[in-house]
Design a protein around this nucleic acid. Sequence first.
DNA 1: ATGAAAGCGCTAACAC
DNA 2: GTGTTAGCGCTTTCAT
Lengths: 342, 342
Amino acid sequence: MERKTTIHDIARELNTTAATVSRALNNHPSISAATKEMVRETAARLNYRQNKLASSLRSGRTHTIGVIIPSAEISFFGSVVHGIERVARSKGYRVLLFQSNEDPSCEAEGIEALLQSKVDGIIASVAKETTRYQHYLEVKERNIPLVLFDRVDDSLQVPSVVIDDYKGAYMATMHLIEQGYTRIAHISGQQHIKIFNDRLRGYADALRVRGLPVEDDLIAYGKVSVDSGRDCTDKLLSSAVPPDAIVAVEDFTALGAMQSIKRIGLHIPREIGLIGFANEAFSSYITPSLSTIDQQTIKMGEEAALLFLDLRKKKENGQTNAEKIVLDPVLLIRESSQRINV
Amino acid sequence: MERKTTIHDIARELNTTAATVSRALNNHPSISAATKEMVRETAARLNYRQNKLASSLRSGRTHTIGVIIPSAEISFFGSVVHGIERVARSKGYRVLLFQSNEDPSCEAEGIEALLQSKVDGIIASVAKETTRYQHYLEVKERNIPLVLFDRVDDSLQVPSVVIDDYKGAYMATMHLIEQGYTRIAHISGQQHIKIFNDRLRGYADALRVRGLPVEDDLIAYGKVSVDSGRDCTDKLLSSAVPPDAIVAVEDFTALGAMQSIKRIGLHIPREIGLIGFANEAFSSYITPSLSTIDQQTIKMGEEAALLFLDLRKKKENGQTNAEKIVLDPVLLIRESSQRINV
DNA sequence: ATGAAAGCGCTAACAC
DNA sequence: GTGTTAGCGCTTTCAT
């Protein structure tokens, strides 16, 4: 195994010192252009590669942002990560990705790993099952910049970026009302997760504004999955006075609802309207295509990265505050909810 | 900003030395149980957290595997990563993820970053557009364990895990033949990518074995995307003697094909059969559900991680070889191809 | 514009 | 079983 070349090797070759080489490589202003040129040439010739470990150990900065996502198999998160990466990369940061698999202890492990790796900051979306936030609190207490997105917890008091879930659900419900649906049900999720509760409120308020009934029988509480969406819909449709439209808490739930509706043989959107939330990749592909609320994923990632950069700067100045960015949801009208004007 | 506690702080507290603390924390055999206990207690009390940077710099090992995937938005890769993580974690490794976004230069950057971070090894799937393998060769030359999965390049001579793409396409085509389709088309991808070429051969051989025509008119070469699948199918269906079934090179292509077929108004599977490749998450959700070839993603990830572990061991013994693991594909028969026995 | 020297936090020989 | 010492490869004062 060949020894790796270090800045000392380059220094020896050029009859100079490691300090000069280091400065040249880092484009330090007080190094002459000539020296920089020579150093770079020699570095390339010797196939030199900087050891980030040593560099970071010494400088105290890794130029790495740790990102924790619940699952890489949900395209929403993949897309947000793209946004984060775009901004991060342009500012010289790299992104280290961790999946929590929706599991709080795995999430804690991930945070631990990121802290040990001395990342410069953490951007995260909270796992569905997480109810205690000790591991996140510790990040904050250690003064490591922490930014949350989408699934946030306000009690943590950290900067975050979300879309207006209340407004999204309100828009979705209003859209169904305008399409002439009058008995509109909602499949919600775990109520300790803020975004699900917000969507529930948006749904209910839209009905109220238009004088439509907000009945307990019209609201199902599921676990936010295809299976749960199917089960909840089975129940809703078999009730005494079934709904003629459904607002699903997100697209996978809507997918389950669609399966249930098809099995019963009702026509979407003629006999029953359906709208999801998230604009998952598959939502435009399925038949009928699923109306949904777009969450501005790329923008969400970009804003999260910008919040992190902000936080770093403020940290240097000793400032601190918990800015909250709220993005506007976008209503996407597709086949599943379009009963008129077709 | 509070100073971080180090092993020296713990040592001072206990009137011992950093070395002892380090050994205790690492569960070194020659440290007494009593000492270990005290050290651990004090470490916990002082809220100590190991600095992996320093540890890795000194020991030369990071216990990190770098994984390069073309895109986090394709569930196939997310799933393989799960498999990798499962094995890696059980052996004390963590996984650092990088997206190449199917872009060769981004891929090279990712490798560079991983090398600088001194990962213990790299597991990768090659970006679609990559045709030169210099960046991968360098990994190998630097003696960093490198394992490829799915999209591999045999000329690199590194261990790899793939499924038998030839066999998968052969099975898919044979299944369509058995369902009574007689004029079966294939939408392929870029031919410099081995797996696409393998699938093409599997398709052709199945037809030959059963004495069906293998015509140039029945083979379309696309770019492996929903759009490309749609365009290719438009072309295939508008030909003089259109096919009565299509083997798509993968599921997104099949999705595009399905859109095209629906637009024309043909019934799947009665008038035209369709099968994909990959078992993407959406394939079971769409209507009609898509028959496809499962690629054993979790297993693929697990095997890739095992190959890496193997490689590490062999490296210590100075051995080297390029084992290739070939997994068996699994035919999933769903609605889109099932014309008989319904 | 460059050099000398110190040290980031940890581990690993080698002592005893 | 524990202490001593050295140094991983780099950056960063402080000199000059």
